[in-house]
Each structure stands twice: as structure tokens, then as C-alpha cells.
């Protein structure tokens, strides 16, 4: 099987994740992530007909909590964790454009 992952794929994913990778790092991660994917691809050789996709190891359904208010955090404490705050809000560099 040919390598499942191209260098461009890694560059694209890195960009989506806001990671800046050097050329050498791109090569390294293409190699390493490729191996991980190849390992996952091993499963393609198995006959999985009738096997349900598993997202969770537990047979749990409908885990919910009652709609009851619990105490929130103290605002001063919360804002103290942030690099910057103003008017009771978190201050961040100006956002260009709208949310996707």
C-alpha cells in the first residue's frame, strides 16, 4: 500500500490547527502520522461486515443531568486567569471577519 498521507495533507491539517511547522518537521510528521494511519489501515484487511461502528467502549445511553442551576465561578477569579480583561469581559486581539 502506498503512503496514505501526503506532505500537503500534513501542511493543510497543520494550518487548520494553527501550527507553524518547519520543512523538516513537515517531513517528520508526514512519516510519523503516515505510520499511524497505516496501522489503522490494517483493519481494512479484516472482514467487518455486521460490526457496528464503535465510538465508545461503554454500552451507555442517554446520560443526562437534571436541569438545575449550580453555582458559577467568581468572575474576578475567572478574568484573573486571562492575559487581559476589560469591562468584565475577556479582551482579545481584534477579530477580523465573522465566525465561520
Amino acid at each position: 500500500m502506498s503512503s496514505p498521507l501526503r506532505r500537503d495533507d500534513v501542511a493543510h491539517v497543520a494550518k487548520l490547527a494553527r501550527l507553524t511547522l518547519s520543512s523538516a518537521e513537515l517531513d517528520m510528521f508526514t512519516e510519523q502520522l503516515g505510520q499511524v494511519l497505516e496501522h489503522a489501515n490494517d483493519m481494512s484487511s479484516l472482514n467487518l461486515e455486521g460490526v457496528k461502528p464503535t465510538a465508545h467502549p461503554f454500552e451507555l445511553l442517554n446520560v443526562v443531568r437534571a436541569d438545575e442551576i449550580r453555582a458559577s465561578l467568581d468572575r474576578d477569579e475567572v478574568l484573573a486567569m486571562a492575559p487581559d480583561a476589560q469591562d468584565g469581559r475577556f479582551a482579545v486581539p481584534r477579530i477580523m471577519g465573522e465566525a465561520p
Partner: peptide
Amino acid sequence: CGCANHFGSEPNTNVC
């Protein structure tokens, strides 16, 4: 989470 779902509260008072 159990934070109040309330419009018009003081900013960042319903957070956890």
C-alpha cells in the same frame, strides 16, 4: 453544565 441560562446577566457571571 449547571450555569444559569439567562439573558442579560452581568458579563461572565454565568461561567464555569
